[in-house]
Amino acid sequence: MKIFVCIKQVPDTETKIKISSDNQSIDSTGVKWVMNPYDEYAVEEAIKLKESKPGAQVHAITLGPKARAGEVLRTALAMGADEGILIDAPASLDSTATAKALAAAITKEGDASLVFTGKLAIDDNQSAVSQMIAEFLNIPHTTVVSKFTYGPEAITVERDIEGGAKEVVQMVAPAVVGANKGLNMPRYASLPGIMKAKKKVLKEYSLEALGVSADNKTKTLSLSLPADKPAVKLLSGDSQQQVTALVQLLRDEAKVL
């Protein structure tokens, strides 16, 4: 059984974002790069499935600049993935081009039984690549998955939708599963795992080798930071006075009631 897991390297959630002088990308100076948090759930679920299927292998794939992106594969390997596959491509690739490249790599590797992804990358907030990979592979998908069961006939998953509701979905494998928080508790990499991961050779593909062009369908025009907020209006007096003043301001000044 070949299990693929697509992961992305993103700035840590504590990162304060700065914009480069080109106004098109973020300034990566001093950025701490980590595995996209939702991808950790994807890797964990892939490894859990592998552990329940003798002979199964987990292949972690990422797409990004070679200079840094390989590191996220080492993290996946240290957690227990068997192979790391790096698609060397600029960080500016859009969702459609990214999904095409990932799908092409999965097709090239062949025999996918299952593809795990995170439901969303916390940097570009698109939540598009998982579904697009499924389309390019012509297989079913479910995203925002908080429960996964692998059966001989079908995969059963639970998908979180609005208002706390869940859809119970069955798919015929192979399929793409987009992981949500709550799916599992991702394991920490063990020290021997980390040592072993450092020595592993990553497999590399260029976009050319995959027969995919870097043609984007969308483009970024410019980036900007949110406008500074005016200073907070702190309310004075005892708690009753504060509360009375607040409600009055919300009604008469802010007009949000």
Partner: peptide, 9 residues
Amino acid sequence: LFSGKCFAK
């Protein structure tokens, strides 16, 4: 982007 830490046109 980044849930609102920055905005892209």
